[in-house]
Amino acid sequence: MKRILIHITVIAVFALTINSPVLAATSAPVTGSVLPDIKLTAPVKTDIRNYLGLSRGDFFKIQQIKTKVIIIEILSMYCPHCQGSAHKVNELYRLIENNPALKDKIKLIGIAAGNSSYETEIYRKTYDVPFPLFEDGDFYIHKVLGEVRTPYYIGIRIDDGVPLVFYSKLGGFERADEFLELMLQLSGLKLK
């Protein structure tokens, strides 16, 4: 009995520690589905917390970001395509932030698959990334999201606190304005 309790405790602690579902996904999130439960470490910097609309807490779930639509970029500092398209993603962020009708309704985050916090910071500094990046050094989130290649984009609409996937696709985009238009169209986001 003692051994059983020890094993249960070990499994429970491990599952809680990794901040993600215990079982990994076998495929990428599918359009129309609910995004798997993902917990991220809450940023320390106040401006990033404010951008995400987060209050106190060490961790947060994607759907707790105070907005209607979230665009997630899965990237890596070791990914040439991510490096090459970083300026376009930055432009996407600025198009959203510079539009008063969009800035509170769409948020952009990056998850750095397999990158330590040091490596994630190198990427952020190198490309002057203005939106929040989260390290996923041990590939936990990456596994939950089906071990997609990079860069990969996931569009999420928050409906009554439920994160619904409206876009899930491998590869970058040619033009930030066209990609934003696509996100608006597919999310069904109403601007007024």
Binding site: A24, H81, F139
Partner: peptide, 17 residues
């Protein structure tokens, strides 16, 4: 099974390039 899965499975963040 859980320990083996998380500690030994290989993960790739491979670029689409």
């Amino acid at each position: 099974i859980i320990m083996i899965f998380f500690f030994t499975s290989i993960s790739y963040g491979l670029s689409d390039v």
